[in-house]
C-alpha cells in the first residue's frame, strides 16, 4: 500500500468516525418536552406534612382516587391565574369524590399562602406549606407552577408545567387513565 493511499484511508476513517459520532448524538434521545419527568410511570415520591389549616396530609392515604398535586407560590403570576380554575375543579371533584387536589407551597411563606387563598375564597383542600423545600426536590420541581397527576395506584401518570384550567386538568386526568 502506498503512503498516499494510507493517508487517504486514515482521513476517510477519521471522517467516518466523526460523521458516526455526530449522527449518534443527533438521533440520541433528548429531553425536548419540558413537561417530561423521570417520575412518570413511577410510584409518587413521599408527600406528607402539616397543612395550612393545622391538619395533616399523607398521599398514601389517598389510594383509590386520583390526586392532582399542584406546586405553587403566592408571588407566581401563572399561579394566580390558575387559582380560580383549580378552585372550581377541586370543588366539582370533591362533590363527586373521585379526585383530590393538593397544593404544595414552593419557596414561599405560610403567611403569604394564607393571604393568597383568602383572595380566592379560601382552600377547602389540603395545602402543604411547611418544610416543602425538600418535597419540591423530591418531586423534581424547578419552577412554579408545576402540576402532577397521581393515579389511584399511587403512580405519577401526568405532569404539566403550563398554567392549568378546569378543563385542561380534566384532560390531564383522562390522559392519566381517568374516565370522565
Amino acid at each position: 500500500m502506498t503512503r498516499r493511499s494510507t493517508t487517504r484511508w486514515a482521513v476517510a476513517g477519521v471522517a467516518v468516525v466523526i460523521v458516526a459520532l455526530i449522527g449518534l448524538l443527533a438521533v440520541s434521545k433528548t429531553q425536548t418536552d419540558s413537561a417530561a419527568s423521570p417520575l412518570l410511570g413511577k410510584t409518587a415520591p413521599p408527600l406528607a406534612g402539616k397543612t395550612l389549616d393545622g391538619g395533616s396530609f399523607d398521599l398514601t392515604s389517598m389510594r383509590g382516587r386520583f390526586v392532582v398535586v399542584n406546586f405553587f407560590a403566592s408571588w407566581c403570576q401563572p399561579c394566580q391565574e390558575e387559582a380560580p380554575e383549580l378552585r372550581r375543579w377541586a370543588q366539582r371533584h370533591q362533590a363527586k369524590g373521585d379526585a383530590q387536589l393538593v397544593n404544595v407551597l414552593f419557596q414561599d411563606t405560610p403567611a403569604a399562602a394564607e393571604q393568597f387563598f383568602a383572595r380566592y375564597g379560601g382552600a377547602t383542600w389540603p395545602v402543604l406549606a411547611v418544610g416543602t423545600d425538600t418535597i419540591g426536590l423530591d418531586w423534581g420541581v424547578a419552577k412554579v407552577p408545576e402540576t402532577f397527576v397521581v393515579n389511584p395506584q399511587g403512580v405519577v401518570v401526568a405532569k404539566t408545567i403550563t398554567t392549568v384550567t378546569e378543563s385542561s386538568l380534566d384532560d390531564l386526568l383522562e390522559r392519566g387513565g381517568a374516565t370522565s
Partner: peptide, 26 residues
C-alpha cells in the same frame, strides 16, 4: 438521586454510559 427526579440534564458531567458516554472516549 437528582437525575431520577430532574432527568439526566440536571447533571453537568455527561453520563459515562450510552451515546453521551462516547464523549469520554474522544
Amino acid at each position: 438521586w437528582f437525575a431520577a427526579r430532574y432527568g439526566q440534564d440536571i447533571l453537568l458531567t455527561p453520563p459515562r454510559r450510552g451515546v453521551e458516554g462516547l464523549i469520554w472516549m474522544i
